[in-house]
Design a protein around this nucleic acid. Structure first.
Length: 847
DNA sequence: GCGGACTGCTTACCT
DNA sequence: ACAGGTAAGCAGTCCGCG
């Protein structure tokens, strides 16, 4: 095992040892450098205290070799390695070759002896397996620890706390046809989905640093004073620490903030920091927003600079993260930045990963808006600003009955990762860790990526898009026009169910058995094993089934009480996050189980499934309007035929087809992934339309929404005539207002994200980069992730950041064109012509 | 030397 | 550090044009 981040998890202090037989939530596992052993952080929900337990089972870091002990003893470099502890012969099962293997476990005196520095043991071996696993994770696997679950110390040893899973007759009934293996996995996971998540004691902190010229202070050099710090906890603390700066007025606490927090003034920055450290050093969880890269990093370096001895700084800096010596630091920026969380857990509700945008979208509270520089604010105004940030940060974990906290803990249980890791790593790491754990549990050898590659680095299909590795999903051309009464059917978790039903896994696709070669995936040369159940087929299949067949229906079951339903829905969402990524990871090179044939086969079977379903629907004389990957849109179908199709797909294709939604009507242009649907209740579904893209100018979005609101009131074909006139009016008005420049500069702004450092745009210079370069010249800092607001102007450069723009230079023609494309996406469907609409205007305006 | 046709780059979206 | 498919706008290049 490698412990690249050894310093990160190294603890310097002894903390209280847990009492015997006290069930505690296991928050994290780490490696203690001084004691040279694994440790565990345990949280007791009753006393709200954190305990530390240190490994006393004589567990050591190791890696595996395919050489015998005798052969290894001939390796003089290895034998003279000062970190070598010893050898142990073990038997493992090699799934790739479907056979037992004898291997030697090489034990090291500490994690770094195995790997992580030059000359480590793993580098002295011709071949090493399981040598790149971080030690604290290795410990989790070997001790069968499930982080986020209840554990206790019994007779000095760490043990699973007993948990009553209750009556599971109904559950077992649902899964009665499943294999023995499946049921074993079910019983292994079930406690994770049942054990409650306590309201863990936690504190959110935020600091403000003096800065000139709206520059973000550099946390490495930490040159400026920390002028304010806020502390907001879920156990009653609400404080703001303020550095006295006589040159500034105190001001007054802004209305709305009185009594929200206690103010403490400090003469010296050192004392302010000390006070903050005392708080940080006694909470089981400390929350920040961007604390890894700013707050905690700044605090650490600033404290050093001010002469704090290292052991009085409760922060431990890792490569890309800041850890705490006592509790767990959760950086919510990292968590919400995670694409899977954003898309699947929060259905894209927030589109920018700033504290302000996330909080506004999820809890309808924003940051305090400022007109002055932070450093010039009256002290009590600064206090309110700072407090609000900490308050929002805490609230982000509290809203909806601790939804985010519960999600985090459930994801810990599923991925078997510590809280620090699960909140910082992406979904591929979660799946990787789960797979490693499950391999170890079954004594399977964890394959090296090159072992998989050497056997399965083939692909048979050609992607439609350049630079893609294989062919993906099928998208059916839409039938343009307005269609009433449209039923959308979709396959429930199509790819995961394919992975399950077709036994797809890295070891089962192109397996070593000659007799399986007849079991071929359509459109490919890949065959699938008929002798063994694949690991990913089993695990992903289980997670998919338990979500679709149990937690999803339960989360909607009106017979259950609110609290229980809410719990089922959190579990369902946590599962969704993992399941939705489960196919993609096999096509991602950096995933350690990367296996193109798995991803390619999944997509191929997916195409086969939707194509067969469409053919069948047409046989049943149903009219297919559109389809994308796993969905089919059917025009005005007979109910009977719908059920017939659903039954057929179950029987013939082994997939669950369900009615997903029913539209009063849908408007399609000729564009794929681009439509507007109105539900029976008048709510609207907008997919892919420019008017809804976050980079479109505000005034375009507003005009577009006006049009949508008109369309949402259309009930029948007759209503359209009236609606069309209203829409024409909206388009025309907007067109004229562009011409007359009757919008604000902000309204005219395109807001485009810079996805990489500005220097890396070498092939072309897109408009937002041009605008960003103009800002750069002004001395503004620009970094990846920033959203650049610019307007299109007449002249050579064509763009101007709004900070520099004047309304007169706006290129109205460009905006008219943009308005046209935005409206055309819908007008096309309605049979209207944009030019005619605005052309009329010109005539009229001349008359 | 200019403009239209084309390709490629980039972003934002859908499933 | 999950995948591929699609739309759109613009940057840059090629080619023809007496």
């Amino acid at each position: 095992m490698l412990v690249a981040d050894v310093s990160a998890t190294e603890a310097r202090k002894d903390y209280e040892y847990p009492p015997e037989n006290l069930p505690c939530l296991l928050l994290s596992v780490g490696y203690h450098g001084e004691k040279n052993c694994a440790y565990v952080r345990l949280y007791d929900p009753e006393s709200r205290k954190l305990y530390w337990w240190y490994d006393n089972t004589d567990h050591h870091p190791y890696c595996l070799s395919d050489l015998s002990i005798d052969d290894l003893k001939k390796n003089s470099k290895l034998m003279s390695h000062s970190g070598l502890l010893g050898f142990e012969e073990v038997e493992k099962y090699d799934l790739l070759h479907d056979r037992k293997v004898r291997m030697t476990k090489i034990l090291g005196k500490n994690p770094l002896a195995i790997g992580g520095r030059s000359g480590s043991i793993r580098e002295l071996l011709p071949n090493a397996w399981e040598a790149k696993i971080q030690y604290h994770n290795c410990y989790i696997y070997d001790k069968k620890i499930i982080p986020g679950m209840f554990w206790m110390v019994k007779g000095g040893r760490l043990e699973k706390a007993p948990l009553d899973v209750g009556d599971i007759k109904e559950l077992l009934q649902v899964f009665k046809g499943e294999s023995e293996e499946f049921l074993e996995v079910l019983m292994e996971f079930l406690p994770s989905f049942i054990a409650p998540v306590p309201d863990i004691k936690r504190v959110a902190i935020d600091i403000e640093v003096f800065s000139e010229l709206d520059r973000i202070p550099d946390p490495e050099s930490a040159e400026n004073e920390i002028i304010c710090a806020a502390i907001v906890s879920n156990d009653g603390e609400s404080r703001v620490l303020i550095l006295k700066r006589p040159e500034l007025s105190k001001g007054e606490i802004p209305s709305g903030f009185t009594d929200k927090f206690r103010v403490e003034f400090f003469d010296k920055e050192v004392d302010l920091i000390k006070t903050l450290f005392e708080v940080v050093d006694c909470y089981p969880i400390v929350l920040t927003f961007n604390g890894d890269n700013f707050d905690l990093k700044y605090l650490y370096h600033r404290a050093l600079k001010l002469g704090f001895p290292k052991d009085e700084i409760p922060i431990i800096l890792g490569k890309d993260a800041a850890y705490l010596r006592y509790g767990v630091h959760v950086d919510l920026y990292k968590f919400f930045h995670n694409k899977s969380i954003q898309v699947y857990a929060f259905s894209n509700k927030y589109k920018e990963e700033t504290l302000d945008a996330i909080a506004k979208a999820l809890i309808d509270i924003g940051k305090v808006s400022l007109e002055t520089e932070i450093s010039e604010l009256p002290l009590l105004v600064l206090a309110a600003y700072c407090w609000q940030d900490a308050y929002i940060t805490l609230e982000l974990t509290r809203f909806d009955d601790n939804l985010v906290l519960k999600l985090i803990v459930l994801l810990m249980r599923i991925s078997r990762l510590s809280m620090e890791d699960v909140t910082r790593q992406g979904v591929s790491s979660w799946i990787k860790n789960l797979f490693y754990y499950e391999h170890r549990l079954r004594n399977y050898l964890i394959p090296r990526p090159e072992d998989i590659a050497s056997m399965k680095n083939v692909s048979d299909t050609k992607a439609i898009t350049k630079d893609k590795k294989f062919k993906g999903a099928k998208v059916v051309k839409p039938k343009p026009g307005v269609h009433f009464n449209v039923v959308v059917l979709d396959f429930a978790s199509l790819y995961p169910s394919i992975i399950k039903e077709y036994n797809l896994s890295y070891e089962t696709v192109r397996c070593p058995h000659p007799e399986c070669k007849v079991n071929v995936v359509p459109e490919t040369s890949h065959w699938i094993c008929t002798k063994r159940r694949g690991m990913s087929s089993l695990l992903i299949g289980f997670l998919r089934d338990i979500r679709v067949k149990w937690f999803k229906p339960k989360s909607k079951d009106k017979g259950l009480n609110d609290e229980l339903r809410r719990w089922y829905s959190v579990v369902e969402r946590a599962l969704k996050v993992i399941i939705n990524a489960s196919y993609g990871v096999f096509g991602a090179e950096h995933f350690p189980f990367y296996c193109l044939p798995v991803a390619e086969s999944t997509a191929a079977i997916g195409r086969h499934t939707i194509e067969a379903t469409i053919r069948k629907a047409q046989e049943l004389s149903m009219e297919i309007l559109y389809g994308d990957t796993d969905s089919v849109f059917i025009k005005n179908p007979q109910e009977k035929k719908i059920s017939e199709l659903i039954e057929w797909s179950q029987k013939a294709l082994n997939v669950d087809l369900d009615v997903d939604k029913v539209y009063r009507y849908v408007a399609f242009s000729e564009r794929k992934k681009n439509y507007l649907g109105v539900f029976k209740d008048g709510s609207v579904d907008i997919k892919g339309l420019t008017g809804r893209k976050r980079n479109s100018p505000q005034f375009i979005q507003k005009a577009f929404l006006q049009m949508v609101s008109v369309l949402s009131r259309v009930n029948s074909e007759q209503d359209f005539n009236e609606a069309k006139e209203e829409i024409e009016r909206i388009a025309r008005t907007c067109y004229v207002k562009i011409q007359r420049r009757e919008f604000t500069l902000e309204d005219f702004a395109f807001r485009v994200q810079l996805t990489k450092p500005i220097k890396s745009y070498v092939k072309t210079t897109p408009q937002h980069v041009k605008a960003a370069r103009q800002l750069l010249e002004l001395g503004k800092e620009i970094k990846p992730g920033d959203i650049i607001s610019f307007v299109k102007v007449k002249g050579k450069e064509g763009v101007r950041p709004i900070e520099l723009a004047r309304k007169e230079e706006i290129d109205t023609e460009k905006y008219k064109e943009y308005l046209r494309t935005t409206f055309e996406q819908v007008l096309d469907a309605l049979g209207l012509d944009f030019d005619k609409i605005v052309g009329l205007t010109r005539l009229e305006s001349w008359i």
